[in-house]
Computed example of a mutant assay.
Amino acid sequence: MSFSLADGVSIAQTGSGAVLLDERSGRYWQLNSSGARVLEKLLAGESVGEAGAAAASGTRVAPEKAAGDAAALLERLQAAGLVSR
């Protein structure tokens, strides 16, 4: 399943993650480094499980927890209209 940023949404990498700008509303959304990595992987066409595993790589987070966290982030980004299929 492939995801993309919604029209009018831009992303900028920061030293601690990334910031999404919804140009339609003027709202900013800040992602920590794990969230930014999940979003990067999803935008590159990886699955939610793969994106979660990539974000958890090198940490003590269990793969199942990482996949659940990635799914929750994706759900919030979709609900906010920032990411679409």
Rank of each mutant, 00 (worst) to 15 (best):
A67I: 07
L73Y: 05
G68D: 13
V48S: 03
L74D: 10
G58E: 13
E64D: 12
S57H: 14
A62Y: 12
G45S: 06
G52T: 10
G52Y: 06
E50N: 05
E64G: 02
A55W: 00
P63E: 05
A62S: 13
S47K: 12
A70N: 09
A71F: 00
A66L: 06
G58W: 07
V48C: 02
S47A: 13
G68F: 03
G52F: 07
A55N: 01
K65E: 05
G52S: 04
R60G: 15
G52H: 09
A44V: 09
G68A: 11
S57C: 07
A71H: 01
E46M: 05
V61Y: 00
A62E: 15
A62C: 04
G49L: 05
A72P: 00
G58R: 08
A55E: 03
V61N: 04
S57Y: 07
L43S: 01
E50F: 01
P63R: 06
A70W: 05
D69T: 08
G68V: 07
G52A: 03
A54S: 13
A51T: 12
P63W: 00
A67S: 14
E64P: 03
G49D: 15
T59Q: 03
L42D: 08
E50Q: 14
K65W: 02
S47G: 15
D69I: 03
G68Y: 04
A53V: 11
L73M: 08
A55S: 11
P63F: 00
P63G: 02
L74A: 12
E50S: 11
T59P: 10
A55Y: 00
E46Q: 11
